[in-house]
């Protein structure tokens, strides 16, 4: 194997090639030059940030050969609770954010405990959490969106001021060139990278995904590490939920339906193995960009819904096959 082949065999190289191919589609179908504007790319980054944040947590869980189907529902639950706390209860933003992060982490801890302590399959345990969290979101919100509108005593509707934290999270900084949610996403990527590549629990996650029994025999605290993985995944889902509420100016109990599938698609397109033990957050970052550009290019070209779904399916398969090909 010569040097070029070795580089080509790297998963990161392949993820780069997949991303490059998708971006080059954008230069071909640039929609009257819309693809050449920075604002298009900036908006793409904003749109995909939420999915990317979910994918950070999903990467951690998938590295342990698990899966978390509940992230979309936890996102919806947190969006509702965050809106309630900050719009209607007038909580201090720091307190509201803290409480919401704790809520997300608690959801993940419950799933993780059911998986690690009782040996329930991750698919089943997180499926249960997905249904439960969605129900809780609907219960807390009464099935209605939690927005600025409030019902007065006489039955009419008025509206309250939007807390500044919403504007702050939906704003753009650096001369209006980068959305705050994109920065939050990048912070999540860095935090995940530090955990996975620089800290002991990160190495434990890889070990469990590679061979759980062997990891146990070599002294890895399997149960604790697995619970930690799901707790972090829930925490990231909560971060995404807060971003979602801020970008919509409201908490929608139906928010985030099927987002878990996008998050899984991002991780897989990046090249992290669903079997666990192999992958990295860099791959997930590349996968996030691939999915983001794919959606953006289809959108600026105003491709119809039916063809859009078919093209997305086809391109995902193509990207994954490209990942798989042996050099």
């Amino acid at each position: 194997m010569n040097a070029a082949q070795r580089i080509l065999a790297q998963p990161a190289t392949r993820a780069f090639i997949a991303l490059g191919l998708i971006v080059s589609l954008g230069f071909v179908f640039h929609a009257d030059g819309a693809f050449h504007k920075w604002s298009t790319h900036r908006d793409m980054l904003r749109q995909v940030s939420e999915h990317g944040i979910l994918a950070c947590g999903m990467t951690i869980v998938i590295l342990t050969a698990g899966i978390d189907l509940s992230v979309g529902s936890v996102l919806g639950l947190v969006a509702v609770v965050f809106s309630l706390m900050s719009i209607h209860w007038g909580w201090n933003p720091v307190l509201a954010v803290g409480a919401c992060l704790a809520l997300g982490a608690a959801c993940g801890t419950v799933s993780g405990s059911v998986i690690a302590r009782f040996g329930v399959q991750p698919f089943i345990a997180t499926l249960a959490m997905m249904v439960f969290a969605r129900g809780l979101a609907k219960y807390v919100s009464g099935g209605q969106k939690i927005s600025q509108s409030v019902q007065n005593a006489d039955g009419s509707f008025g509206y309250v001021e939007l807390p500044r934290v919403f504007d702050a999270l939906d704003a753009r900084i650096l001369g209006g060139n980068v959305s705050v949610v994109t920065i939050i996403f990048l912070v999540c990527v860095v935090v995940t990278w530090v955990l996975l590549a620089r800290m002991r629990p990160g190495r434990h996650l890889y070990a469990i995904g590679g061979n759980e029994y062997a990891a146990h025999l070599s002294g890895v605290p399997v149960m604790r590490t697995k619970i930690l993985a799901y707790a972090l995944c829930g925490l990231f889902a909560a971060v995404a939920g807060i971003c979602h509420a801020a970008q919509e100016y409201q908490g929608d109990p139906e928010a985030g339906v099927a987002y878990e599938l996008t998050a899984i698609a991002i991780v897989v397109i990046g090249g992290t193995s669903l079997m666990g033990g192999r992958g990295s957050i860099l791959l997930t970052l590349l996968g996030t960009l691939s999915i983001g550009y794919l959606e953006k290019i289809l959108s600026i070209n105003a491709v119809g819904e039916a063809s859009r779904l078919m093209l997305t399916g086809g391109i995902i398969v193509a990207a994954v096959l490209l990942q798989r090909r042996r050099a």
């Binding site: 929609a31 009257d32 819309a34 604002s39 298009t40 929608d252 959108s299 600026i300």
Partner: peptide, 21 residues
């Protein structure tokens, strides 16, 4: 014109594309 499937996040996405074009 674009299909946003009744969903607000999709509408925002599609509108950004419209604004870009």
């Amino acid at each position: 014109e674009a299909d946003m499937q009744w969903l607000e996040p999709n509408a925002r996405k599609e509108m950004e594309s419209a604004l870009a074009r």
